[in-house]
């Protein structure tokens, strides 16, 4: 089937992903596979926030990574501004990678332990060849630190010296520094205490208003997703089982998993 050209900012068609769990010795051919995603379609437009919720292990992070070009899919395609990312030349791909940034679930794990925070935040500028002037990078880094509510002298520390919440804010600063169009937030605020969480969510909303950024907001916290997202996608065992506005999904859930999720939520 020919894939329709896509009008959305970013979209994925019938994405499937199988991980090789076991290989035959010597020949190296896959012996056992695990299907993490099965024919998932997804789209997002400028300035929009799409929430992805779903059971642990249902494939949310895998989907995010495929949409952001960090992983390839086994089947299906991802289009950024109507261009299939597989068909992009190097320059196009660099533009794509600049415009789609990530904030990960495990911020410490995604940071090099021997890099100073200053270099971690400034790194995307260098790898994406946006800026090489040290002074300029340095002032941008400090501006970002202020935006996420961190002190300037954190810049010279190492990730191991920060608390969980501080690390998460560094990750957010690193994503913001290249001024992306889309940020994929994978459990971006789940490690934060409520007051910092509120600060970050407010910040993300402000930035969205200012720069018309789009967010793919992966979270298990339906209170947060409900607050952030215009549209919500519910995943279960590798497929999308329900989509709709926050009201539709959380007030009149139809899938058993969504029902259970809403019923068990601590928030009221």
């Amino acid at each position: 089937m020919a894939v329709q050209p896509c009008r959305h900012l970013l979209c994925g068609h019938d994405i499937s992903k199988a991980f090789v769990v076991e290989r035959w010795p010597i020949i190296g051919k896959p012996r056992k596979q695990f299907t993490a995603l099965e024919k998932v379609s997804f789209h997002i437009d400028e300035g929009e926030t799409v929430g992805i919720v779903g059971e642990s292990g249902s494939g949310k992070s895998t989907l995010g990574e495929i949409l952001g070009g960090l992983r390839t899919c086994t089947e299906g395609s991802v289009h950024y501004k109507a261009v299939n990312i597989r068909d992009m030349n190097r320059n196009q791909f660099r533009v794509f990678r600049r415009n789609v940034q990530f904030i990960f679930q495990d911020p410490k794990g995604s940071m090099h332990p021997y890099f100073r925070i200053r270099d971690i935040i400034g790194e995307p500028l260098k790898t994406l060849k946006l800026c090489s002037d040290r002074e300029e990078i340095s002032s941008l880094v400090e501006e970002m630190l202020a935006q996420v509510g961190l002190d300037k002298d954190i810049a010279d520390k190492y990730p191991g010296q920060l608390s969980g919440g501080q690390c998460q804010r560094v990750a957010i600063a690193r994503a913001l520094i290249v001024n992306p169009q889309i940020i994929i937030c994978d459990e971006a605020v789940s490690a934060l205490d409520v007051s910092v969480q509120a600060q970050i969510l407010n910040l993300l909303k402000d930035l969205q208003r200012k720069h018309r950024m789009a967010y793919i907001f992966i979270s298990h916290d339906i209170g947060v997703v409900n607050y952030m997202a215009d549209r919500i996608v519910v995943m279960n065992r590798g497929s999308i089982v329900e989509t709709g506005t926050a009201e539709q999904v959380f007030i009149t859930p139809t899938h058993p998993y969504t029902k259970k999720l809403v019923a068990s939520s601590f928030v009221n």
């Binding site: 059971e55 642990s56 679930q105 459990e187 490690a191 298990h220 259970k260 999720l261 939520s265 601590f266």
Partner: peptide
């Protein structure tokens, strides 16, 4: 923070 990565059903 044992349940930061878990949704409310599994958290409970």
């Amino acid at each position: 923070e044992p349940t930061t990565a878990l949704d409310s059903t599994i958290q409970m």
